[in-house]
């Protein structure tokens, strides 16, 4: 298939990558699914965007996507930030696929650092962009050592790290990239999602794929797979809670972003998941700073 020939643009293979690269990545994805939480090395390619912009996730998406897929891309929950817009435009151009911002309509959702609030369904695939796939890397810089620790399922060091958190701060202070154990075997980095999202990974109906381009690793969590956040009996895992609901749509029990309004301490909290927030406002939900609510108050 050729794309863009009529408007003078360069002609790429479908979904940008060449077929041999796709086969290599597809084989890595299959082994990743067969060994949940294990990081499969792969020969990451240079992509037409810098490392740190989601080249791992882009390569995974490019290797699984087909002409019938509908793609959604989010960056910190938002469909309309630079990274999300660029990647969506990239696949619209090189794979000619339909894109959407609606979680329920997407067959593939590529994400940077969030899981949508709406529960994912059977058949959907969530592709994570991962910067540092090795959860032990900041504790042990040597790959030879971390590999051995995974081989022996020797994760004491991670528990020491969480214990030190408690000793210093009185609670586990890790709030994002909170380590999880997959199917009672591999300790895995859930990518820098807020720990708020960790419970959504557990027994999800959707297939979860993780791509780290710079670090050249792919890993996976199949549907209906145990994903347990590490903790202690007397310091159980807890997610973030928010005192006030979303200022725009009034949603509670969702992850909120803080937005500074002025230089006098004014602030508001709004849904990080823009699609979820828009849907709720369409359905008539109003937070205390939503336009209609303010007009009514005036």
């Amino acid at each position: 298939m050729t794309i863009g020939t009529d408007d003078g643009l360069a002609t790429y293979n479908f979904a940008y990558l060449d077929e041999q690269t796709k086969r290599m990545i597809r084989r890595a994805i299959l082994k990743g699914i067969a060994i949940p939480g294990y990081q499969v090395p792969f020969a990451s390619r240079e992509m037409p965007m810098p490392y740190g912009w989601g080249t791992g996730g882009v390569q995974v998406t490019a290797s699984i996507i087909g002409p019938d897929d509908v793609l959604k891309v989010i960056d910190q929950g938002a469909d309309d930030t630079t990274n999300a817009v660029s990647i969506r435009a990239f696949f619209a151009k090189v794979a000619d696929v339909e894109t959407t911002t609606e979680t329920a309509k997407a067959s593939i959702i590529q994400t940077r650092h969030r899981i949508p609030e709406e529960k994912l369904k059977d058949g959907q695939i969530l592709v994570y962009q991962v910067p540092i796939p090795e959860p032990l890397r900041f504790l042990e810089p040597r790959e030879t050592e971390t590999r051995k620790m995974h081989a022996l399922a020797e994760y004491g060091l991670m528990h020491v790290k969480l214990y030190e958190d408690i000793a210093k701060n009185g609670h586990i202070a890790t709030t994002y990239a909170y380590p999880v154990k997959v199917e009672d075997r591999y300790v895995m980095d859930p990518s820098p999602t807020p720990k708020f999202d960790n419970p959504k990974m557990h027994m999800s109906d959707a297939l979860q794929l993780f791509g780290a381009g710079r670090e050249k690793r792919i890993y996976a969590v199949p549907p209906h797979t145990k994903v347990v956040s590490l903790d202690f009996e007397d310091y159980p895992f807890e997610i973030q809670t928010f005192e006030e609901p979303c200022a725009m749509c009034g949603a509670q029990g969702v992850y909120l972003d803080e937005v500074i309004l002025d230089d006098r301490g004014g602030r508001m909290f709004v849904c990080s998941d823009t699609d979820y927030c828009e849907k709720r406002r369409e359905d008539g939900h109003r937070g205390h700073l939503a336009g209609d609510a303010m007009e009514a108050a005036e």
Binding site: E19, L30, I64, P222
Partner: peptide
């Protein structure tokens, strides 16, 4: 059509491996 045939066969195998 090797490009699309490979993709659809792979997706079937991926779904089978994931479930």
């Amino acid at each position: 059509d090797p490009v699309f045939a490979s993709q659809s066969v792979f997706r079937a195998v991926m779904d089978a491996m994931a479930r």
